[in-house]
Design a protein around this nucleic acid. Structure first.
Lengths: 202, 202
DNA sequence: TGCAATGCTATCCGTTCGGATAGATACGGT
DNA sequence: ACCGTATCTATCCGAACGGATAGCATTGCA
């Protein structure tokens, strides 16, 4: 058989994910990938198919872990789950350090604009996931009778999507979750006003 | 005296703005700047101080034109102005083509993260402008009695900021304003529910 | 009409880019 | 112990990068 790998593929992809997440695609060189992941430039070509393929692999891994997270698979999700989602995103203690770099998928969409079909596919997957999760949580709230009747679920879903993107933007721009805390708390509180009680504690 | 310039500085900076806006900083080479703006690489160094300085100049011009726009200087701005702002942003016919590339400042924040002090200064200016405009429009609505008493102006300002960022993100990701229309309309409608009448037409 | 000033053209520089290649090395089945 | 195989190390490549420089062209004023 063959010589054993210096770095396990999973660890390598995770390390590459963090690097691309932080520096973007154009901002990260293959030599830096080599240094910080342990992947040699040779292996980058032969095993991972080059820089762009590795990037897409890392992005897929990112979306996979998002999709497989406890949060996204909580079949009991309702209005309160949504509020908690935003509160967590803006809380430094609840999030890993890397999340201070915003959202990898969002960063990717901004860098590539809509010019790369492979990126577009993944962006669509991301939007689908978020809309689906927000939408079904709102539906569940409606069924529970804990959502105002005059709210449009489709429209509220768009609102939630936009605020989630905005929150990740400001976190990246400021470089820490704390900077998004005020925004996250505001969003969470707004979401709760969509529930039956609309009294806001001051 | 000296030889006259081939390209007027203002036109050159505007052309550079559109290029950086579209391709980002790392994604745009000095030779491409040369070809598409008429600025020679020589002049880029001597007159504009290099690629980064030109980028910052273009970014400042972007923020200036934003600050000096009719919209931002409407001293009568209220809840309806905010709703209109979002509707316009998502309307292809009301926006210049370049706006399908999202917001130059947002793109810049994502690309540079929080690593460049010069970019951070401009990001802060941008946030200040948006928060100030949203905030004062909300205050005016409150004074007019056309804002729900139980709404917190500071928190609604954060919501509006996040949705504005999110809207620009999705427009860039999709490559056209139309893609943001559903989101924009949803945001506008939510804003109007903050007014005295909370009945939503279906 | 000549002169000083400035932008122009053309070329060169060193660096870094992503990727390719050749030979050394380590591994596991036989 | 040997051998095939896959990964390693160590280069090398052409291209593109941002920037620098020398000399030509053009300008308005003296």
């Amino acid at each position: 058989m063959s010589r054993s790998r210096k770095v396990e593929p999973e660890a390598a992809v995770n390390a590459a994910m963090a690097l691309f997440w932080t520096h973007g695609f154009a901002g990260l060189g293959t030599r830096q990938i080599e240094e910080e992941t342990g992947i040699t430039r040779f292996t980058l070509q032969t095993t991972y198919g080059g820089k762009m393929k590795l990037y897409l692999t890392a992005l897929d891994a990112y979306l996979d872990s998002f999709e497989n997270s406890d949060l996204m698979n909580n079949v009991e999700g309702d209005l309160e789950s949504i509020a908690t989602f935003f509160e967590m995103r803006g809380n430094s203690n609840a999030m890993p350090n890397i999340a201070s770099q915003g959202c990898f998928m969002l960063n990717s969409m901004i860098e590539f604009s809509s010019s790369d079909p492979e990126i577009n596919l993944r962006a669509d997957r991301y939007f689908r996931m978020l809309r689906q999760w927000f939408g079904s949580a709102l539906e569940r709230s409606r069924e529970n009778g804990s959502l105002h009747l005059d709210l449009h679920i489709r429209e509220m879903t768009e609102i939630l999507l936009s605020t989630a993107l905005g929150l990740n933007t400001i976190i990246r721009a400021k470089g820490n979750h704390g900077a998004g805390e005020k925004m996250a708390v505001s969003i969470a509180r707004m979401v709760r006003t969509w529930g039956p009680s609309e009294i806001l504690p001051t």
